[in-house]
Amino acid sequence: MEDIQERIATSFNSQGLMATLGARLVSAADGEVQIEMPFSTQLSQQHGYVHAGAITSIVDSACGYAALTRAPLDCDVVSAEFKINFVRPAIGERFLAIGKVQTSGKLLAVCTGEVRALSAGAWKVVAIMQATIVNVRG
């Protein structure tokens, strides 16, 4: 278990975008990764919601890192495709992206993800993703 957390944390900490977004790795376990991001006006769009690009970035990373927990040790991962549905405006104090592996094989993993927003003490889902992640060697 500690090897998984170290592997994911090392890669996560090397991502400039996650640092720019103020995101942090919350947890990494076999097949599931959670990433949290605080609200910032620097990440907002014209209506004051967190921009779809920021929400997409954290859930894409959560899905990718969930896939990395199942990837061979000599592989890294990249996103091949994803679909995201925004089910309500991204309004909240904090946002939690949860990526989960649904199935994985030698080359591909299919993951689902969701982003929850914390507002007034309650969590609500704001986005849902399905992603295909590819193992890449070297």
Rank of each mutant, 00 (worst) to 15 (best):
R24E: 08
L25F: 11
L25V: 05
L25E: 00
V26R: 04
V26Q: 05
A28N: 01
D30T: 03
D30K: 15
G31Y: 02
G31I: 00
E32I: 07
E32T: 13
V33F: 09
V33Y: 09
I35E: 00
I35L: 01
E36H: 13
E36Y: 03
M37L: 10
M37F: 05
P38E: 05
S40A: 15
S40E: 02
T41L: 02
T41R: 15
T41D: 14
Q42C: 05
S44L: 06
Q46E: 08
Q46Y: 13
Q46M: 11
Q46F: 15
H47G: 08
G48I: 00
Y49S: 03
A52N: 11
A52E: 10
A54R: 07
A54H: 12
I55Q: 11
I55W: 04
V59C: 05
S61P: 00
A62W: 02
A62I: 03
A66H: 08
A67R: 10
A67S: 10
L68N: 07
T69E: 12
T69N: 12
T69V: 14
T69L: 13
P72F: 14
L73D: 12
C75D: 02
V78E: 06
V78R: 08
A80S: 10
F82I: 04
F82W: 13
F82T: 05
F82E: 01
K83R: 09
I84H: 04
N85T: 06
V87Q: 03
R88T: 11
R88H: 07
R88S: 10
R88V: 05
P89D: 10
I91T: 15
I91E: 11
I91Q: 15
G92C: 05
E93T: 08
G99S: 00
K100A: 04
V101Y: 00
V101Q: 04
V101S: 06
V101P: 01
Q102D: 11
Q102V: 08
T103G: 13
T103S: 09
S104T: 08
S104H: 12
G105E: 10
K106F: 01
L108K: 14
A109M: 09
V110E: 12
V110Y: 06
V110R: 09
C111Q: 14
C111P: 01
T112M: 01
T112S: 05
T112V: 10
G113A: 02
G113W: 00
G113C: 03
G113P: 07
E114W: 02
V115Q: 03
V115T: 14
R116H: 15
R116L: 14
A117G: 02
L118Q: 03
S119I: 07
S119D: 15
A120Y: 04
A120F: 13
A120Q: 05
A120E: 10
A122Y: 06
W123L: 09
W123R: 02
V126N: 11
A127S: 06
I128N: 05
I128C: 00
I128L: 11
M129N: 03
T132M: 04
I133A: 00
N135Y: 08
N135K: 13
V136Q: 09
V136T: 08
R137E: 02
R137A: 11
